[in-house]
């Protein structure tokens, strides 16, 4: 998820990963089939909604921000396929 100002300057960026097998208790990736222990399930569960909230501070005089959200399927290393993308403009207005 990335938020930019009208000039394209990145105001905030964050990402969340959902992992096939997950991390062990020491935080190390465990992809090997023989590493069957102490894994956390960090997948998206079937028929469930996963909600992510990103709260961030904006510059004081900003009038509008562009938010883009991309969902990728990562295979290995740097290879990833784009599954979904949405770009939204939202005004920064004090009521």
């Amino acid at each position: 998820m990335t938020a930019k100002d009208e000039n394209g300057k990145v105001l905030y960026s964050n990402e969340k990963e959902y992992l096939e097998i997950g991390l062990d208790v020491d935080g190390y990736m465990r992809y090997g089939a023989w590493q069957i222990k102490e894994l956390l399930d960090l997948t998206l569960q079937p028929l469930k909604v996963q909600e992510e909230n990103y709260l961030f501070v904006l510059p004081k005089k900003i009038k509008e921000a562009n938010v883009s959200v991309s969902v990728y399927y990562k295979i290995s290393g740097k290879k990833k396929d784009l599954l979904y993308e949405e770009v939204k403009k939202f005004p920064i207005v004090q009521e």
């Binding site: 105001l11 905030y12 959902y18 909604v49 996963q50 992510e52 909230n53």
Partner: peptide, 24 residues
């Protein structure tokens, strides 16, 4: 510091499949 503008972005992902995503 006065009044500070903040952004809140909410993303919802609904897994419609019959299994976890991702999976090998």
């Amino acid at each position: 510091e006065g009044v500070i503008p903040m952004g809140l972005v909410r993303v919802e992902i609904f897994n419609k499949t019959g299994h976890v995503v991702p999976d090998g």
